[in-house]
Simulated scan of single mutants.
Amino acid sequence: MTPHDTKGAAADSFDPLRPKLIRVAYRMLGSVADAEDVVQEAFIRWMGTDRAAVREPEAFLRRTVTRLCIDQLKSARHRRETYIGPWLPDPLVEEEPDEDVTLPLMLALERLSPLERAAFLLHDVFGVAFDEIAATLDRDAAACRQLAARARNHVRQARPRFRVEQQHGLEIAQAFFAASRTGDMTALGAMLADDVSVHSDGGGKRTAAIRLVMGFRHVMKLHKSLAVLFRKYGSHLLRTGFVNGLPGFVTMEGDGEIQTTALEIADGRVVAIYITRNPDKLRHLSALH
């Protein structure tokens, strides 16, 4: 068998699983590029594996990807600690919301150890049995249950307490875009909760608040200033949708760069605004230009 034949045979069994593996890797890492790199590394390893001896390719590859992600998280933790301003995961923009892993939950996962994150995601989100998780993490099943339970306690507050009907969420997102860009502060203020916050991720590469903006008064003051810039330089709506499971929209801003905005909504009011401006995190959305 030639190397080309080997690669082709490996791809035939790997490629149908690639979307699932990328989903696991992205939920672990919060980075589209890093997830794709990890999955490609798993494919390279798959080519060198005695595939005939693997009884369950999906479980084998999920285990490989998870272990690679855990290794990646060790270096990622240092990068997050030195990151300029608030860190947000790369935005995934979809037609339908993924309500299992919303943006607030992904931020909560950042506070977990890599093993806790893996145990929680594999079991609670992807439905993997603890026996497989034990083999993946090289721990016994009881220890993996404890890891998942500890993680569950840490992230409980980040799970959505109020399900927002999809169409209603999109309508709020559209109204938020219109009010914020035209400077209609009355309409904007009516949408915001008293304890609303703004999380803006520019990564030191585009202008963004380097700290969280907390509270109704401060958020309104920020948007008054932004409205002046929007009117002067423009802000074009590319699409509405669900950004990491939250209602939101993608815009082309006056500097020629894409931006995403996601809105966390509770009791009909916006309680948090997540804005991603770091161009490194938006490259996968370039097709929306």
Rank of each mutant, 00 (worst) to 15 (best):
F43S: 05
E165K: 10
G241Y: 01
T207W: 10
V270E: 01
R67P: 03
E253M: 09
L21N: 01
A148C: 09
L88D: 08
G245C: 13
I22G: 00
Q157A: 14
A35K: 05
G127K: 07
V128P: 00
G268D: 04
P114M: 13
S75L: 11
R239V: 08
A266T: 13
S31L: 06
L73F: 09
L107E: 04
R55P: 00
A9G: 09
G202N: 02
A158Q: 10
L282F: 14
A10L: 13
R159Y: 12
A143I: 06
F177R: 14
P247A: 03
R277W: 02
P91T: 11
M252T: 03
D12I: 07
F126C: 09
R231F: 02
F176R: 00
S75I: 03
D50Q: 12
H168M: 11
P114F: 12
G204V: 10
L73Y: 09
D12R: 15
L238V: 09
I265G: 01
D71F: 10
H4M: 07
S31P: 03
L137M: 10
A33P: 00
I84P: 13
A143K: 14
K221V: 04
A52L: 09
L103E: 10
L88F: 04
P247G: 02
A187Q: 07
E41S: 06
Y26G: 03
L109P: 00
A227W: 02
A9D: 09
F249C: 02
L288E: 15
D12Q: 13
R67Y: 12
V196W: 00
L246D: 03
M28F: 11
L121I: 14
A287F: 07
Y83Q: 06
E96D: 08
S13T: 08
T261G: 02
A272I: 11
H123E: 07
I210R: 11
I172T: 12
A76D: 15
L246N: 02
S200A: 07
G8T: 11
R277S: 05
R269P: 00
L246V: 02
A287N: 10
T251M: 11
L229S: 13
A190D: 09
V164I: 07
R163F: 15
R45M: 14
A175Y: 05
Q259C: 11
L246M: 05
G85D: 07
V213R: 03
L115K: 05
L212S: 07
R159S: 10
M220W: 01
H154T: 12
